[in-house]
Design a protein around this nucleic acid. Structure first.
Length: 278
DNA sequence: ACTGGCTCCTGAGGGC
DNA sequence: TGCCCTCAGGAGCCAG
């Protein structure tokens, strides 16, 4: 699934082909994504000023506003020669006048293509997003501040885009193992110092995944559900019953907040905390 | 104000 | 070999 690193990789891949180019035309083959595809007619002939990422959203900026793309969990963007046959689940195609066309393919259609006139960051999907996990605004203090008065479990807390963007289910599980915190632990039972470890762990996991992003790039063309090499390195995710790479205990798998949740019962104890690797 | 549960969708994987 | 059933997952949305 496209995690933040894949979105970043996608952005870097397509940006050189779009920036400073004119959007000549587009085709909507299936508008039924998460929301109906919204590209205003008046965008025809307008110049793409630049591309940027916000969380897992890709923003294509024009003078008049921004096109907001999200890949959901199965979406991908490809640049293809003009005469390339459409693939199953190709839903939108953009023509920027060059030798290649941009196509959005998304089997599960959890993605979106929306438009925001003017300041794109005021869009309802973007306005309440938390800080970027690799940026300066993300820290243990930030987590502690947002956790105040809440009693939610720490894992869904980390996956809340209002807290910090880009932390998907895999990374939340992995980061909490590195931080020695059980995913079910309520945020109100986490001391300030441990939030520092959690923030560091989130950063480390994402940074490592971005390093692996180059690998993911290679098989971007052929959609593949699981991450490439990163999967080999997973500490707890989808490893129920397998030995913890640190202490050998059997990894526990359960459902929390409707999501697969994995932890080591020894390194992430129910009482207190385990050793923090970050 | 929070919190937990539901929802969209398709392909993968397990069971028989 | 093939079919059917279950389930995963990002994240907005809503009810309690």
């Amino acid at each position: 699934m496209p995690e933040l690193p894949e979105v970043e990789t996608t952005l870097r891949g397509i940006a050189p082909h779009l920036e400073q180019q004119r959007l000549i035309a587009w085709r909507v083959l299936n508008s039924a994504l998460r929301w109906p595809v919204d590209i205003p007619v008046a965008l025809a002939g307008q110049v793409v000023l630049r591309l940027r990422r916000r969380g897992k959203y890709i923003i294509v900026e024009f003078a008049a506003g921004g096109m907001i793309l999200h890949l959901g969990m199965s979406g991908s963007l490809r640049l293809v020669p003009r005469d390339t046959p459409l693939l199953k689940h190709d839903h939108v195609e953009w023509d920027f006048g060059g030798p290649v066309l941009l196509r959005l393919n998304d089997p599960r259609r959890f993605g979106c293509v929306l438009w925001q006139a003017g300041d794109v960051d005021t869009h309802r999907l973007l306005a309440r997003l938390g800080p970027e996990p690799l940026g300066n605004a993300f820290s243990g203090d930030h987590l502690k501040e947002l956790a105040r008065g809440k009693r939610v479990a720490v894992k869904p807390f980390l996956m809340d885009a209002g807290v910090v963007v880009g932390v998907g289910n895999i990374y939340a599980n992995e980061a909490l193992h590195l931080a020695g915190v059980r995913p079910t632990r309520s945020v109100r039972r986490i001391p300030a110092a441990r939030f520092d470890h959690i923030a560091s762990a989130v950063r480390r996991v994402l940074a490592e995944a971005i390093t692996q992003g180059g690998t993911t790039l290679r098989d971007f063309i052929s959609p593949e559900g699981k991450p490439g090499y990163f999967r080999q390195r997973l500490l707890v995710y989808d490893r129920t019953g397998e030995p913890c790479r640190r202490c050998g205990s059997a990894i526990v798998g359960r459902v929390l907040g409707g999501r697969g949740t994995f932890y080591c019962p020894e390194c992430q104890p129910s009482q207190g905390f385990g050793p923090a690797a970050c």
